[in-house]
Design a protein around this nucleic acid. Structure first.
Lengths: 218, 218
DNA sequence: ACCTGAACACCGTTCAAGT
DNA sequence: ACCTGAACACCGTTCAAGT
């Protein structure tokens, strides 16, 4: 049954990777499948549902790599390792498929793949000693940082970190701003976002430990 | 000169607030201004530039409220207060204008309003004792959390926190997942996102203090 | 200088019709 | 069951023309 459906979603994914999300239309996808636009509707339900399916496939990729084909992590994995592997996998997927960054904030994680990812994070946080009542919130916090970082990088928000545009930004008509002025030296270096992502993950690890330490008190 | 331009951007903002971002087209905006679609082009430069202008206006709203009309914070403000006020202002703006969440990841913060906000955060982090070389990274981390949280709330990612869809998510064909199973009780409560946002800000404060403590060593 | 009107190359989706 | 074709109500943008 979902044979034809898979073929359609695949065509849409290929189109998005090759020519961007804007190039994905019912008409271009249909042409790629070799069919009339209207023939897609019984299979995928419309443009919005097709985008959902594309995002679901993308989120499913997260669990494809770490720990081999079974999906689960190898038994001896620490919560720190697991968190970092998931974070790096998520960033890698968004960098490989930038169009996904546009979609990822707009739909809940209900695909099987993303549910499994959330479950792994839940288990990691419990292992770390985070109190049960804090786990869902901290999971949302961590995934928001990872997704937000990757989206900022892929979509252009972080291009403001270019030394050039930052130099511009510090200079307003009424003179430079105090914070920019004090950071002049630091702001003139280019940013290595891979390293910054790792530093953020270090900090998040520290934060999770602090939350776990505060623990079942309070 | 930018008299007509301001009128056009205002019309686009009103349209987005009333009927969503999808309702903003060159044609609908032109109709609202009382002019032909093509008359907009010399003033705003095209659809993409119009969206940029809308986002710039939105980011400018961030500095409108805190600390009165001058824009700057009152002298005695602690870095903690400043961080929280900016964060709450940002979330409020995104909730009042959900369409902005779609745009905010895709463009660097180059408008005057957002540059001033970044500068305030730089100063707050320096006051907190964060080492100069860490300030830009930590600023990006904090703003990513705030923007990511607000976008997730406004755009629908956090609707997965509904108890109903979460119950569904824990139950896959091959039985419930371990993390979801252990958190069953906690996951069945509805989520108060206002409170969660405050708890996240508490944690970020702890994190900034930890980074500041580590300080000018390393 | 500023605006209009017609046109071009697109959209998503409905609906009646084919096989 | 599955697909087609014509049609509807839209898009952003170019270009020549008006005043």
């Amino acid at each position: 049954m979902p044979l034809r459906r898979a073929e359609i979603v695949e065509a849409a994914l290929a189109l998005a990777d090759e020519r961007g999300l804007d190039a994905v239309s019912m008409r271009t996808v249909a042409e790629r499948v070799g069919v009339t636009p209207m023939a897609l509707y019984p299979h995928v339900g419309g443009k919005a549902a097709l985008l959902d399916a594309m995002l679901d496939w993308m989120l499913g990729q997260l669990n494809a790599d770490p720990g081999g084909p079974g999906g689960g992590p190898p038994p001896g994995t620490s919560w720190q390792q697991l968190m970092r592997e998931l974070a790096h996998a998520a960033r890698a997927v968004v960098i490989a498929h930038p169009w996904a960054a546009t979609l990822v904030f707009s739909r809940p994680a209900v695909s099987e793949g993303s549910v499994r990812t959330v479950d792994l994070l839940y288990s990691a946080l419990l292992d770390a000693g985070v109190a049960e009542r804090d786990v869902p919130r901290v999971e949302r916090l961590l995934s928001t940082v990872v997704i937000g970082f990757a989206a900022s990088e892929a979509l252009g928000r972080f291009t403001s970190a270019d030394p050039d545009v930052r130099a511009l930004r510090g200079m307003l008509k009424d003179g430079p701003l105090p914070g920019f002025a004090r950071l002049g030296d630091v702001l003139s270096c280019p940013v290595d976002f891979e390293a910054e992502f790792d530093a953020d993950l270090d900090d998040l690890e520290v934060l999770v430990e602090a939350i776990a330490g505060r623990g079942n008190a309070g």
